[in-house]
Amino acid sequence: MRAWGLIRLYAILVYVFMFSPIAVVLLLAFNNSQFGGFPIDGFSLRWFYKLAENEAIIRAFKTSMVLGLLTALVSTTIGVLASLALVRYRFRGKDLITTVLISPVLVPETVLAVGLLIFLRWLHMPRSFGLLLVGHSIIALPFVVLVVQARLVGIKREYEEAALSLGANPVQTFFQITLPLLLPAVFAGALFAFTISFDNITATIFWRPSGMETVPTQIFGMLRHSVSPEINALGFVMIVITVGIPLIAGGLARYFSRKKI
C-alpha cells in the first residue's frame, strides 16, 4: 500500500499548511521582541499586559461581544421558527422558501453590505449599531437555519403528537417537548451565529458608524502600519475565545450526554 502512504503524507502536509500560520501567530504572541515577527527574543507576557491597557482594543472587544451575543439571539430566534415551519409543516412553495432563506449566503457579502447601506441612505438613516446588528443577523440566519433544520429532522414527531394528544396546546408542546430536544441544535446555531458576527469584517467595514470599531476592524486598522506584537497577542486571545468556547461546549455536551446513559 505505497499509494495509501503517499495519500496520508499528502493529507498531513495539507493539515500542516492549514495550521502552521495559525501556530506562528500563537507563538509570536509570547515573543519578547518589540517587532511583531521573527526572530524570537525570548518568552514574555508583556504584549498581553499592553493589550489589557489598550483602551481602543478593549472598547472594540466589548462592541464585538455585545454585537455577537445580540446577533446570536436575533438570528437564532427567527431561524428556529423558520426551521420549524420547514420541517414540521407541508405547504406550497417550500423549495422556493428554502432558497430564499439561504439566499444571504449566495449574495456576495460586499454586495449585501453596499445594498443595505444604499437603502439606508435612501431612507436618510445614518449608520448605527442597529445596522450592524440586523446586518450580522441576516448573514448568520442561513447557517442557523441549516444547522437547526438538520437536527430537527432527526427529532421524532411522535413525541410532539403524544404531548398534543395528552392535552397540551401547541405552545406548551413547543416549550416543553420540542425546545428541550432541540436545545443542542439551538445552542450550536447560536454559537455559529456568534462566531460569524464576531469574525465578520467584509460587511462590518461598510456598516459601522464612524468611530465604532469591532475587533476585526480594529485589527485591520492597526495593520495599516505593520504587524505589531500586540496584534499577535490579540490574535491569541481571539483564537482562544472562538476555538475554546465551542470546544468546551462540545466537550461538556458529550460529558453530560454520557452521564445520562
Binding site: 500560520p21 495559525i22 485589527i219 481571539m238
Partner: peptide
C-alpha cells in the same frame, strides 16, 4: 477548527510566514 479561527488573523498570519521578518 479553522472555521472558528478569525478570518483576519488567518489572513495576516501569512505576513509572519512570507514577510521580511517572517519565518
Amino acid at each position: 477548527l479553522p472555521f472558528w479561527v478569525s478570518f483576519i488573523i488567518r489572513t495576516l498570519s501569512w505576513i509572519h510566514i512570507l514577510g521580511n521578518k517572517g519565518a
